[in-house]
Amino acid sequence: MLEVKQLVVAYGRVNAVKGISFNVEQGQIVTLLGTNGAGKSTTLRTISGLLTPVSGEMWFEGERLDGVAAHKVVEKGIAQSPEGRRLFRQMSVEDNLRLGAFSRKDAAGVRTDMDRIFDLFPVLGSRRTERAGLFSGGEQQMLAIGRAMMSRPRLLMLDEPSMGLSPIMMQLIMSTIRSLRDEGITILLVEQNAAAALKLSDKAYVLEVGQITLEGTGEQLLGDDRVKRAYLGED
């Protein structure tokens, strides 16, 4: 579904992503694993069209993706929930969701989808007119995922959805991600929390300073010694 080949992205003269290649298959959860500064978020931003790659190719459903403007990427069916959630803090829950659906023209469909988000996260539905900034971290993460879902993406990219959440809230978010996958949405996940992410991943890649150093299924990586030492804190 998404194919990234030899992607190089730079901030000024510093290469943040140094020629990585990976695939995301339809209906899978694929995880990019790595520490701070490994280039995970940079990769997602490049796919979203927010950054322009130096070289390399990106293909989505057989169409070239590099060089496509950010708003066109959303129209093609890719949505991103950015790092740090980046909600519109002063806007109501409803307005945040409407902005997620900015690229869509079908008013009735948007309303139905909004109700679906409220079914998925009842806490958002009961406080739909409150401004996003007043919600707790976990609730904001729900809203961030809901907002990204509003464009009816076929590929949903989540940048560190577990960041700063309590263990219970994290489990809830992770099970939501799994149920979204079961509904048929392909998910590209970026995480630092290796244990939780690998458990639900169909495929995972380990990124280290801009390069992919390991790849395999979630289970394979969970059992890998290097992953255990570096990311799971086991000896």
């Binding site: 950010a70 708003h71 950015p82 519109f88 902005l99």
Partner: peptide
């Protein structure tokens, strides 16, 4: 309107607006 919402989104967080598909 939809356009107004897009404008306010740009003011609040331009990058997030762009990521949501707003043609900033």
């Amino acid at each position: 309107s939809r356009i107004g919402r897009g404008w306010v989104a740009i003011r609040e967080d331009e990058l997030a607006a762009e990521a949501m598909g707003v043609n900033t």
